[in-house]
Design a protein around this nucleic acid. Sequence first.
DNA 1: CCGGATCCAAGAGGATACTG
DNA 2: CAGTATCCTCTTGGATCCGG
Lengths: 118, 118
Amino acid sequence: MLDLSQCSEIKCPIQFVVDLLDNKWSVLVLRELFGGDRRTHELLAALPGISTKTLTQRLRELEAQGLVERRVYAEIPPRVEYSLTSKGHQIQPVMVALHQVGSQWLEQESCVCPLIRG
Amino acid sequence: MLDLSQCSEIKCPIQFVVDLLDNKWSVLVLRELFGGDRRTHELLAALPGISTKTLTQRLRELEAQGLVERRVYAEIPPRVEYSLTSKGHQIQPVMVALHQVGSQWLEQESCVCPLIRG
DNA sequence: CCGGATCCAAGAGGATACTG
DNA sequence: CAGTATCCTCTTGGATCCGG
């Protein structure tokens, strides 16, 4: 008998994206890559607190989702560079919106630091 | 001695928003509330798989962050309604962008269901 | 109807050490 | 330099039961 269960699941586009990115680091990794190609140690430096294990996991996931490309250079010492694919670039509107809303909310927050308030 | 550690932390706006929403359900709860005010059991029905405990947790968080308002009516049986605050509405650009990118990606996916292709 | 309290399973993710 | 393997901790979140 034909299994149509997958077909009847009408997937919400919002949920679809959220599912791809709902973990501690994916969005921030993408944010870095929007700044240009990055080597592994550059990402580690740009994302304080992330472990090598987690960074690798996230990059592999993003690669499997077709958002990120991994390029390996046959050199000693090894060199690996990560970049956004064209599909990865498509997420830019989300990043722009996150940045806009985040800036708005940060402004609205009362600043805890008297020095900045001046 | 004055603790300035908080001040030296320059917060990325993107990370700021991500921190507020990085869990399994917050974005989807907000998606529902963009559809209008909702009672508890309506949210439970609209979010298949969520538990009452988790829904309450997310709502309390969103309330604490000022994104959601909780209104209690003194009736028997009890009635509680949740709605977006004005700050909550400010996240709309993110939802729009998520929806747009998600739709785009879903289209690009090869459809697994022959009936829809048909 | 709403939601708090408890218990529990699963997974995410950090620290460290090690390999090519 | 890049990445894997192991170990371990903490959090998330579901299931269930109970109370207002």
